[in-house]
């Protein structure tokens, strides 16, 4: 990004990290995801946090961890300090917590890996899907993604039952080549990303790439992804563009390439138009919004930056952004750090 936009984004991030506006009140139980969007954005613009704060943030995150005896995994905040029977860990928060710890360069010595594995097992359904908490029967492809991502990050897939999970992902496939939140639903950009990224992580784990999707499926998914660009990207057919879909669709495309015979250098998008759209969502006081002239929020800001980073070969203003791994949505340096630390555990 040019210095000016970088400085604006940085101001937005500091302002929000210090104190989130009261509009975020309803996300109190999901604070770790908000923190992840903020700190990942710092990572993408290449700004380091002062060491004093990283130490105390790491402490806070570990306070959200429940040990094996309490079910394992991470809660989203310390909002409910009651016994975990009513406030168990949440799979999405566990995934966000590990990425956050990596972003803050923690050494993971305090990570309760058996607890995390137990928490994945307790959220697994017979059909291959997962729930956010064991007390919640809601289950869908977003949680499949969180289970696969967590397993990838801790380098242990033992609690994902791979054949049923693959079958569940295939069941979410829609007639137009996209993937829905659950079987038989309407395909959508975010859920298509979750499905393809999960397949990619599973195929990496199995060490086989080309057997999860047949050629015809690859071709119709590719067609659906290419149709989503309007200037930026829309999430569904005939909807308006929204900055977060620049990330979801690009990420889905990367994962599709990884599990098919499509060449890694292959590109189907108009990066310049997408870049212009995302930058038009940049608020004059900093932060990227969903649409132009909207108020920015931490999710769209992070995903907008991630997308810009993925388009940075052809978007001048994005040249200084750090490279990201779109499958886990984290910058490459952080992912290397996590892999290094997890391999010695």
């Amino acid at each position: 990004m040019v210095d000016e936009s970088n400085a604006l984004i940085s101001k937005f991030l500091h302002r929000h990290l210090n104190l989130l506006p009261s509009a975020y009140e309803s996300n109190d139980s999901a604070r770790l995801t908000l923190a992840y969007f903020l700190i990942e954005a710092f990572g993408i613009i290449g700004e380091c946090l002062p060491q004093q704060s990283t130490i105390s943030y790491i402490d806070y995150i570990y306070k959200c961890q429940l040990d094996f005896g309490l079910g394992g995994g991470f809660r989203g905040s310390l909002s409910i300090n009651n016994p975990p029977i009513f406030d168990p860990s949440n799979l999405t928060m566990t995934y966000a917590a590990i990425l956050l710890l990596g972003l803050l360069r923690d050494d993971f010595t305090r990570l309760d890996k058996p607890g995390i594995l137990k928490s994945i097992r307790d959220r697994r359904h017979a059909d291959g899907s997962f729930s956010p908490t064991p007390t919640n029967s809601e289950s869908d492809i977003r949680l499949v993604y969180c289970a696969c991502a967590t397993s990838t990050l801790i380098n242990d897939f033992s609690e994902v039952h791979i054949p049923t999970t693959i079958a569940y992902i295939h069941a979410c496939r829609s007639y137009d080549g996209s993937y829905a939140q659950m079987p038989n639903g309407e395909g959508q950009g975010g859920t298509t990303y979750c499905a393809l990224a999960s397949l990619e992580m599973i195929s990496q784990h199995l060490n086989q790439s080309s057997t999860l999707l047949n050629e015809e499926d690859v071709s119709s998914t590719l067609r659906w992804l290419s149709q989503r660009q309007v200037d930026g990207f829309q999430g569904r057919t005939n909807k308006d563009s929204d900055a977060c879909y620049s990330f979801w669709i690009r990420g889905a495309f990367n994962s599709l390439k990884a599990i098919s015979s499509l060449p890694p250098s292959f590109d189907i998008f108009d990066d310049a138009q997408d870049g212009n759209f995302i930058l038009s969502c940049l608020h004059p006081l900093g932060g990227i919004a969903k649409y132009p002239d909207e108020l920015p929020d931490v999710l769209h800001n992070c995903l907008g930056l991630s997308a810009l980073s993925m388009a940075s070969n052809r978007v001048d203003q994005a040249k200084s952004l750090k490279r990201i791994n779109s499958t886990l949505n984290v910058d490459i340096e952080t992912l290397d750090h996590i892999k290094r630390k997890m391999s010695v555990r």
């Binding site: 989130l20 009261s22 923190a35 409910i80």
Partner: peptide, 30 residues
Amino acid sequence: DEGPSPLAPINYSQKCNPHRDAMDMFRAVV
């Protein structure tokens, strides 16, 4: 109880914030 240095705290600035008040009572009930 968020401890001395909470991560990304939310602004419940109003003294009589109804959300905070209800959550405080919810913790007592639970």
